[in-house]
Computed example of a mutant assay.
Amino acid sequence: MTEPTAPDKKPFLYVVVCASGVAGGVGKLITAAQEANWDVGVVATPQGLGFIDARAVEAQTGYPIRSAWRSPGDPRPLPPADAIAVAPATFNTINKWAAGISDTLALGILCEAYGMGIPTVALPYLNSAQAAHPAYRQSLDRLRGMGVLIGSGEPHRPKAGGAAERFRWEEALELLGPLVGRGR
């Protein structure tokens, strides 16, 4: 578990955003988290950056979006995470994360979160053809075994528009609430 947050300081939520058609809606999760008294910083996969309005996200959070490792000696642009929400979590990120692959900043943070005891939730967003691959179910099982809570969203039909309207951003906070003593 992370260190207790000072009474006058809000807990800090990292939102890891992956390259997905619904990623542009991340402001919904940021707003919900801020309304629930979280400070929020966004970490995007390198490809995920192209799916969000970076200026709008940075204005909303007050923090720069992280996507690449910082150089030695550079200041840390985000406070340490008290919790992490991976939303949307793609097929690629889920499988790499479960395999311990740390080839991006986002994956490095996720791989370290387990060893640091940071409460983490993932909201998968992928199509049913990807979800049918045996590696995906194995990866979800491994992540669950690591204590990661997985959202309830169902994979959408391939090439059918993605069912973005059914993606429940707020589920990340619902799942994290009991883990960090912030149930609604």
Rank of each mutant, 00 (worst) to 15 (best):
W169A: 07
R70D: 11
V121A: 04
E170C: 07
Y14C: 07
V43H: 10
V15L: 14
A83L: 05
I30W: 02
R70C: 04
V40C: 05
I84G: 09
M146W: 14
L140K: 02
C18V: 06
M116G: 00
D53G: 02
R184Y: 07
S102N: 13
P72A: 08
R76E: 15
P80G: 08
K96G: 05
Y136P: 05
W38R: 10
G183N: 11
R184G: 13
G117C: 00
G145F: 07
P75G: 07
T90P: 06
P11L: 06
F51P: 04
W97S: 04
Q47T: 11
R144E: 15
P124W: 00
I30H: 01
G117Q: 03
C111G: 14
R184I: 01
Y125Q: 12
L29S: 02
S67F: 02
R168L: 13
F91Y: 15
A135K: 07
D103N: 14
A23S: 15
A129K: 03
N92H: 14
G153R: 14
E170G: 09
P4A: 08
G145T: 08
G27E: 05
V180A: 04
L175N: 10
A36M: 11
D53S: 12
D74G: 01
R66E: 12
K28L: 13
R55H: 10
T61F: 07
F12Y: 14
P134E: 04
Y114R: 13
G41D: 05
F167N: 08
E35H: 12
D53Y: 01
G181W: 09
G100Q: 06
L173T: 05
Q130E: 08
T93K: 10
S71G: 03
L179V: 01
Y136H: 15
V43Y: 08
G161K: 04
A113T: 10
V86R: 12
V40G: 03
S67H: 04
G48R: 03
L143A: 00
Q47P: 03
D39G: 01
K10N: 13
A98L: 06
E112T: 05
R76T: 15
L126Y: 02
G62C: 05
P72D: 03
Y63G: 00
S152P: 00
D141L: 12
R137S: 13
P134L: 04
S71P: 01
G21L: 01
I84F: 11
E35P: 00
A129Y: 02
T104V: 00
G100E: 08
A164Q: 14
G24H: 11
L49F: 02
F91P: 08
G183A: 14
P88G: 07
G162D: 02
R182T: 05
D39P: 01
G24S: 06
D103T: 10
I101L: 15
I52N: 02
F167Q: 09
C18M: 04
I101Y: 13
P46L: 11
K159Q: 14
V42Q: 01
V16M: 07
T5I: 14
